[in-house]
Nucleic acid binder design. Structure first.
Ligand SMILES: [Mn+2]
Ligand SMILES: [Mn+2]
Ligand SMILES: [Zn+2]
Ligand SMILES: [Zn+2]
Lengths: 131, 131
DNA sequence: ATGATATTGAAAATGGTTTTCATAACCATA
DNA sequence: TATGGTTATGAAAACCATTTTCAATATCAT
């Protein structure tokens, strides 16, 4: 059953090349460029499908760009962590999970009566190089 | 110069009616329903334009729904707070700011070298009524 | 009124993403 | 190697929230 689509490796390699979040279309363009000479690159649909699959399997993180595009990035660690994006150059840095959050979560869960609490904690700032 | 578009008040009133984030199209539908009998409701374009303007002026908060839609809500200007959305029914509850966050922010800022740190902390869960 | 400026509605365009569906690749089995 | 069932793929079309266009209105100062 668990057959491995033959393009997943390619896509993971593209995402592994640097530390920036990329849109599906950016990934696709890289694949198209890279396949000059070699055979045909995977189609855009295939890249979309592969990215979905990889997210589902926990191999990729996603964030949304300010204009609503979905961006993908190889997930370094399997531990939970946050993303700190530079507002000027767009580079993203991983930040270890803030352990303060679990306390806050517990407290909020208790006070609100909500169950199955989950959260997103996205950080932005200006990186040293840009300031 | 600062003419006031005649529909801004209407839209603000719709958003003021309850505490949920709403998409532009939801706001528009409310306006359409509400204008049965009275004159024509503003067009969808006008609602989009008004919401942009109100966000620009700082009167509205926005978040993105999981599927990428932009949602709007009247901004409680004063104190910072978080949003706890029910994954099943979509209702949003305000949660007082987690004071743990400021400590985490300071620590992360120091460790990363980033300046001007800002963050979003969005919560989701299952509300009492849905569980 | 006159004209300058800002707003509006209707329809079309945009653009990222998803769906469709026919075809190809894959894999187990005989 | 043939056979058949299952999954992956490409190309094009569909989707759908949002934006843009542009002609028609409304608004306001003079
Ligand atoms: Mn990550
Ligand atoms: Mn709020
Ligand atoms: Zn930077
Ligand atoms: Zn609920």
């Amino acid at each position: 059953m668990a057959r491995t689509p033959r393009n997943d490796a390619l896509i993971l390699e593209v995402l592994g090349r640097n530390r920036r979040f990329r849109s599906c279309q950016e990934v696709h363009i890289v694949l198209v460029r890279r396949s000059s000479g070699q055979g045909k690159p995977p189609s855009l649909s295939t890249v979309y499908r592969a990215l979905h699959r990889l997210v589902r399997e926990g191999l990729l993180d996603t964030i949304r760009s300010p204009d609503g595009e979905l961006l993908y990035r190889l997930c370094r660690t399997s531990d939970r962590h946050h993303h700190l994006m530079c507002r000027l150059c767009g580079r993203v840095e991983d930040v270890p999970q803030a352990e303060e959050l679990s306390a806050a979560l517990d407290r909020i869960g208790g006070a609100s009566g909500f169950g199955g609490l989950d959260y997103t904690f996205e950080l932005s700032g200006v990186c040293p190089r840009c300031s």
